[in-house]
Design a protein around this nucleic acid. Structure first.
Lengths: 207, 207
DNA sequence: GTCTATATTCGGATAGAC
DNA sequence: GTCTATCCGAATATAGAC
C-alpha cells in the first residue's frame, strides 16, 4: 500500500504533534512550566503561532498532553526495568528508580507530582495514566507484603519526599537517590516491627 | 509625643503594606500563586493599581515579601510551641506540627517549599529566614541524637513528603498529620539500629 | 495545513498632576 | 500617597485567504 494517503497524513500529523510536545518540554526547562509561550513554541518547530491550533485545541490541552506524556514516560521507565527476585530488594530498587526518574527531569517532576499550573487539571483519560502508575506501585508494595492503607500512605510520602528533596536541592544529582536502599530497609523494618507487636502492640511506646 | 509625624506615617505605611500582603495571600488562594494580578490586588485594598508601587517596587518584590512572611509565620508557629521533655517525643510533635502547618495553608506550602513561580528567587535577606528555620530543625534533630548529614537528609525528605501528600491529596485534613508519630518512631528505630550494628554493620543485609 | 491579519484581553510598569 | 492617563509588551485565540 504505497498510496495510503489518509494513513500517511495521520502519521505525519502525529509526528509533528510529537515534535511540538518535545519542544514544549525544552521550553518549559528554559522558561518554566507555567511560562511556556505558544509563540516561542511555534517558532521552535518552524510554524506560526496560529498553526499550533491544528495540533492542540488550546494551551490547557497542550498541558494535558504533556501530563499524559510524562506519565507514559514513567510507565515505560518502570516497565523497562524488571522487579523480579526478592520483593523487598525489588521495592528498594523501585524506590531508587523513582527518585532517579524525578532527578533526571525536574520540570517533568513538577508536572506529574506538583500541581502548580494555574487553571490546569488533567482530563479524565489522562488521569487514568496516573492511576495506572499508582496501581503498579500498589502491586510492588503488595508483593513485599504491604497492603494496609496507612503503610501505603507512608511509602508514597517517602517516595515523594526523597524525589522532592532531590530535585529541589540537587537536580540531576544522586544524593537522595542513594538513600533509597536505607529508607526502604527502614520502612520494611517498621512494617515487621508492627507485625510482631500487633495486635497487642505492647513493648513499644508510641511517640 | 503626640506630634510625631514621621513615626505615624511610617506606622501607617507598614500597616497598609501588611494589609496588601494579607490580601495577596487571599488572591493567591483564589487564582493561584503565579496568577496574582496587581490590578485585582489593588482593587481588593481600595487602591488603584499604580499606587501599589508605593509599597512594593515590583511584583517579584511582592513575592519576596510573601516568602518572608510565610517563613516568619513558620518561625512563630514553632516558637509558640515548646518542644521540651523527651527529645524523641518532641521530634515527633515537631514533625506532626510541620505537616499540620502545611495542611493549614496549601498556597503557603507551595510558596515556601515548592519553587514554581517563574522568575522568582528569594533575596538573600529573605532566604536568611528560611535558613533560620532549618537551623531550628537541625537543633531538634541534634537533641534527639541525630547529627549525621544522611540522617538529616532522610528526615527532611520525611517531613516534606508527608506535608506534600497531605496538601496534594487532602488539603486541610489530617490523614498524613496523624502518621507523624509512627514515622518518627520508624526513623529513630532506624537510627538506633544503625548505631547498634555500625561500624561493623553486620547482621543486616543492605537492600 | 499553513499562512497573514487581527481581535481581545490582560499584564506590569511609568509619567506627572494634585 | 494617591490619582489619571498611558505606555508597551505579551498573551491566547479566531477569521478567512491560499
Amino acid at each position: 500500500m504505497t498510496t495510503a494517503g489518509p494513513d500517511r497524513r495521520k502519521v505525519r500529523h502525529e509526528a509533528k504533534r510529537a515534535e511540538i510536545l518535545a519542544q514544549a518540554w525544552l521550553l518549559a526547562h528554559r522558561d518554566g512550566l507555567a511560562a511556556i509561550s505558544l509563540r516561542d513554541l511555534a517558532d521552535s518547530v518552524g510554524l506560526r503561532q496560529p498553526s499550533l491550533y491544528v495540533y492542540f485545541e488550546s494551551k490547557l490541552n497542550l498541558y494535558d498532553a504533556m501530563f499524559a506524556d510524562g506519565y507514559r514516560q514513567l510507565l515505560t521507565f518502570v516497565a523497562e526495568r524488571s522487579y523480579g527476585g526478592d520483593p523487598r530488594r525489588a521495592l528498594a530498587r523501585f524506590l531508587g528508580d523513582l527518585v532517579q526518574f524525578s532527578s533526571d527531569d525536574i520540570v517533568r517532576h513538577q508536572m506529574l507530582f506538583q500541581r502548580t499550573i494555574p487553571g490546569f487539571e488533567p482530563s479524565a483519560e489522562t488521569f487514568a495514566l496516573a492511576l495506572e502508575f499508582y496501581e503498579v506501585a500498589r502491586q510492588m508494595l503488595a508483593a513485599a507484603g504491604v497492603t494496609d492503607q496507612r503503610s501505603i500512605d507512608i511509602f508514597s510520602a517517602l517516595a515523594n519526599g526523597l524525589a522532592h528533596q532531590q530535585v529541589a536541592n540537587e537536580p540531576g544529582g544522586r544524593r537522595w537517590v542513594r538513600l533509597a536502599g536505607r529508607v526502604t530497609e527502614m520502612f520494611l523494618a517498621d512494617i515487621d516491627q508492627r507485625r510482631r507487636t500487633s495486635p497487642a502492640r505492647k513493648g513499644s511506646r508510641r511517640l
